[in-house]
Simulated assay, not measured.
Amino acid sequence: MNADRSLRELMSLKGRVALVTGGAGHIGRSIGHALAELGADIAVIDISSSGSADAAAELSRQWKVAAAGFDCDLEQAEVVRDLPRRVRERFGRIDIIVNCAAFVGTSGLEGWAVPFEQQADATWRRALEVNLTAPFVLVQAAAGDLRASGHGSIINISSIYGLAGPDWRLYEGTDLGNPAAYAASKGGLIQATRWLATTLAPQVRVNAIAPGGVFRDTPEPFLGRYVARTPLGRMAREEDFKGAVAYLASDLSAYVTGQCLTVDGGWTVW
């Protein structure tokens, strides 16, 4: 019987290709760095071709891996469906998919981060298209690649608002919003994770991460209220999600599928 692999061997992603949607954004960029540091080549997907190219160049320069940017409008199903072909032509394989791109609570959309009565059904549909439909279409199109990998792993980036309802006391007297479509799409992504986990098993593992609120010049009084409600006493930083991604993408979690790992400083334990 062979000796167990070391932790270093289990976490290595050398020879694997990771596709990261929203890869030029705040969390997506951090995820790309985590995967590249472990040796993965990275396909950076973003709606902006210049943004994805810049993020890819940064990864190549810092971690000496192959990285390339791909522009993709996730509201266009046919474009999303063609994305695995484009990545395969560049890298030859796809082993890991991280569905990180999303309309978030601060997105500048009409009828989005406004009171419930003013939230637009057209914007609701756009949010579900990007946050929930695009991951479905992408995984469906890349299922063959992931099955062939031998290490296929999908990580869906959800949210605490896919797990819990909003505490509106945090928002009183602020310009911040919490759209219904965001919560519905992120909750749907967690259930899609469970569905895909049983459907793509045993060749492909499917898990989710539910991040808590991330500090980005977050204004008062929201910041103080949020921190007071969080057991670890602060908002998240992008690097807080690196460990969770490294775990779920690699063979460290080879016997883990269908799970949602909440990385929220304890926000949802109350």
Results as ranks from 00 to 15, higher is better:
residue 217 D to F: 13
residue 206 V to F: 00
residue 254 A to R: 13
residue 199 T to A: 02
residue 231 P to C: 10
residue 201 A to Q: 08
residue 240 D to N: 04
residue 202 P to T: 03
residue 198 T to L: 11
residue 204 V to L: 07
residue 207 N to R: 12
residue 194 R to F: 04
residue 188 G to H: 06
residue 235 M to I: 04
residue 214 V to G: 01
residue 196 L to K: 04
residue 247 Y to G: 00
residue 238 E to Q: 11
residue 246 A to W: 03
residue 198 T to S: 14
residue 227 V to M: 10
residue 189 L to Y: 01
residue 252 L to I: 03
residue 190 I to P: 01
residue 217 D to Y: 14
residue 225 R to L: 09
residue 214 V to K: 05
residue 239 E to C: 02
residue 202 P to W: 04
residue 249 A to G: 08
residue 196 L to A: 13
residue 191 Q to Y: 12
residue 258 G to K: 05
residue 225 R to F: 07
residue 215 F to A: 03
residue 229 R to H: 08
residue 243 G to F: 13
residue 252 L to H: 04
residue 253 S to H: 12
residue 219 P to A: 12
residue 224 G to N: 10
residue 254 A to I: 06
residue 232 L to A: 02
residue 259 Q to Y: 03
residue 213 G to P: 06
residue 255 Y to E: 00
residue 250 S to Q: 05
residue 260 C to W: 02
residue 250 S to P: 00
residue 259 Q to M: 06
residue 244 A to K: 07
residue 193 T to D: 14
residue 209 I to W: 11
residue 223 L to N: 09
residue 252 L to M: 13
residue 258 G to V: 05
residue 255 Y to N: 01
residue 201 A to I: 07
residue 242 K to D: 12
residue 227 V to L: 09
residue 247 Y to M: 02
residue 201 A to C: 10
residue 231 P to F: 12
residue 254 A to Y: 00
residue 260 C to A: 06
residue 246 A to I: 02
residue 235 M to Y: 14
residue 221 P to Q: 03
residue 203 Q to P: 14
residue 242 K to P: 01
residue 216 R to Q: 12
residue 243 G to C: 01
residue 189 L to H: 03
residue 245 V to L: 00
residue 249 A to S: 08
residue 232 L to M: 14
residue 196 L to Y: 05
residue 224 G to C: 02
residue 225 R to H: 06
residue 226 Y to R: 15
residue 216 R to P: 03
residue 218 T to V: 08
residue 225 R to I: 11
residue 254 A to D: 11
residue 211 P to F: 00
residue 240 D to E: 07
residue 204 V to M: 05
residue 189 L to T: 03
residue 204 V to R: 02
residue 201 A to E: 06
residue 221 P to F: 05
residue 199 T to Q: 12
residue 192 A to T: 09
residue 192 A to K: 05
residue 214 V to M: 13
residue 208 A to N: 13
residue 213 G to L: 14
residue 189 L to W: 01
residue 221 P to G: 06
residue 238 E to P: 13
residue 190 I to L: 05
residue 241 F to Y: 11
residue 205 R to L: 02
residue 191 Q to S: 14
residue 237 R to Q: 13
residue 226 Y to L: 14
residue 222 F to Q: 01
residue 223 L to H: 15
residue 244 A to W: 15
residue 189 L to E: 07
residue 229 R to S: 06
residue 211 P to Y: 01
residue 226 Y to V: 12
